[in-house]
Design a protein around this nucleic acid. Structure first.
Length: 272
DNA sequence: ATGGTCGCGCAGCGA
């Protein structure tokens, strides 16, 4: 049964699985050895009725899924309790047209799993959708959250925060994922109070979380760091360890993203 | 770093 551990070390993971149906065995295998307490999944590509909640329950995880079927779809798994789930933005706007954001309280953390739109090309309508999505995510934080709370926003942001997060920055000039507007949207999240927790613990370059399936890019180390764990200052200050698990990108039938996690050792003395 | 690959679903699009 899930235990309601509200303090102490917590391992928070995020993974764009590129179809949970195609990836379920690999996800089960990874959970078995990585032992995350909270897992944020993106691109499940499942309807809610097809989400394998019983499989995760058997592994000791409660779960919430927000899906639409063929595309998108986000989930949160937790073995430290899961409550107050909410799908979508927290502003007063219309519901998003796609299933890209879900929230839950896990232990004493407020957790969001997010799949930011790809953008496709800087002159594409989808790029405007991406920028609007980032703006509404920031508005959701302003509307429904406080930077003094313990909050993590984890997921596939489809943005490389800095040139160090791209294998060849010169090759991506003019492309999505690196544009000033996208990075400004991300910067507004950090201005609100979110810290790139992984990067704080791992300042070295050439750490990527996504590699194109094509051309052997993974084995040539040609990737981008676009999957992020963003945390409020209380969470960031408590982070002790972070890792991108390249092992999970190897072998038969991997996602094009690797999972990554951050360990956070929350101080029981400051529990409200 | 163009795509040479995936997943979805059964053609061709999206990532």
């Amino acid at each position: 049964m899930p235990t309601a551990a509200t303090v102490g070390p917590v391992r928070i993971a995020t993974w764009n699985v590129n179809s949970l149906k195609a990836r379920l065995a690999r996800v089960e295998e990874w959970i078995g050895y990585a032992e995350p307490d909270v897992v944020c999944l993106q691109e499940t590509k499942l309807a809610d009725t097809a989400f394998p909640s019983l499989t995760f329950a058997a592994l000791g995880y409660e779960s919430v899924h927000h899906g639409e079927g063929r595309w998108n779809g986000v989930a949160i798994l937790s073995r430290i309790g899961l409550s107050d789930a909410h799908a979508g933005f927290l502003d007063d706007g219309e519901p998003d047209r796609e299933a890209r954001l879900v929230w839950a309280t896990c232990g004493d953390l407020r957790v969001a799993s997010v799949y930011v739109p790809n953008g496709r090309a800087v002159d594409h309508d989808h790029y405007r959708y991406k920028l609007d999505f980032l703006d509404r995510l920031r508005a959701s934080l302003e509307h429904g959250c406080s930077p003094s709370d313990r909050i993590v926003v984890c997921g596939d942001f489809n943005i490389a925060p800095a040139d160090d997060d791209v294998y060849d920055p010169a090759a991506f000039v003019g492309s999505t994922h690196v544009s000033d507007e996208e990075r400004a949207g991300l910067a507004r999240l950090s201005e609100w109070g979110l810290v790139d927790v992984f990067r704080r613990l791992r300042p070295e370059p050439c750490l990527y979380s996504w590699w194109d399936y094509r051309a052997g890019n993974f084995h040539k180390h040609l990737g981008m760091r676009i999957d992020l764990v963003l945390g409020t200052p209380p969470v960031a200050a408590a982070a002790t360890f972070a890792l991108i698990d390249r092992q999970a990108r190897k072998g038969t039938g991997p996602s094009d993203h690797a999972p990554l996690f951050v360990d956070v050792d929350l101080d029981p003395a400051i529990v409200p």
